[in-house]
């Protein structure tokens, strides 16, 4: 990325994709908070109870469990996809490697050991466990974020579940008790199923459909049978 003949672009252009999605994340999170508090207030009104303020709602477990249950499923999706695409292929899909290239590939393919270059990241030159961890860092971070966000959805779901039970004059449940509740598993599965379908359909649709100019697609003129070409 530091080649002397590369044109230099400004910060905004260099990071346009990440910044755009970061901005869209904040806007849609705001939308979730606004529509969420409106929904809560409609229920409060129907039950003859007082209104809840936006700040109170944004600092409640009921809001955070809805955020975390969606985050966890996204990180589960990426964690599974990053690891599955090492070992499994889909013939003809730009999302996949060529059949026959399953596995972690050679040091030469991966520019490791004596195939490393001066520009290779630090951990590549370090060797040993540091290189081994760095070689799996994308999947490991996605997996760790899945576990953390899933745990966060469990504890916020537990707090929200208990505050609802208290409102109905029922005894609160323990955290372990909540992990056996249908509420927790329904929140998890309803998000997981959509992620699995989305990943599966992107993988197979990328065989037969094209998006000119997108690295998520093969070049428009490439044959359906060609795998792993992006354009």
């Amino acid at each position: 990325m530091s080649g002397v003949d590369e044109p230099t672009y400004g910060f905004l252009r260099n990071n346009a994709l990440s910044l755009t999605f970061g901005g869209l994340f904040l806007i849609t999170l705001g939308g979730q908070a606004l529509s969420g508090v409106a929904q809560v207030n409609a229920e409060q009104e129907a039950n003859g109870l007082g209104r809840v303020g936006l700040l109170d709602y944004a600092t409640s477990s009921s809001f955070l469990v809805d955020v975390m249950e969606n985050w966890q499923s996204e990180y589960l999706q990426f964690f599974l996809y990053v690891f599955a695409t090492v070992w499994l292929v889909q013939k003809g899909s730009s999302e996949s490697k060529e059949p026959g290239k399953e596995g972690t590939e050679s040091d030469r393919d991966q520019q490791l050991g004596r195939h490393a270059s001066a520009g290779s990241p630090g951990p590549v030159h370090a060797g040993g466990w540091l290189t081994a961890v760095f070689s799996r860092s994308l999947g490991l971070v996605m997996g760790a974020l899945f576990l953390l966000t899933w745990a966060a959805s469990a504890v916020t779901g537990w707090a929200a579940f208990n505050s609802e039970r208290l409102g109905q004059r029922q005894d609160p449940v323990t955290l372990v008790g909540y992990l056996g509740e249908a509420d927790f598993w329904n929140r998890s599965f309803q998000n997981w199923q959509s992620e699995m379908l989305a990943v599966g359909s992107l993988t197979i649709f990328a065989v037969y459909l094209r998006q000119r100019g997108s690295p998520e697609s093969k070049p428009v003129g490439v044959a359906h049978a060609d795998t792993g070409q992006t354009g």
């Binding site: 910060f11 260099n14 910044l19 970061g22 477990s61 955070l64 966060a152 505050s163």
Partner: peptide, 30 residues
């Protein structure tokens, strides 16, 4: 690559802060 690294670190920080915030709210029983 300094700007790119900054965006990467901001993403990581936002995600970890969100997770931390969720744990704090749950611990407070809110």
């Amino acid at each position: 690559m300094k700007g790119v690294r900054a965006v990467y670190l901001v993403y990581l920080a936002v995600i970890l802060l969100g997770i931390g915030y969720a744990f704090v709210l749950a611990a407070m029983g809110r």
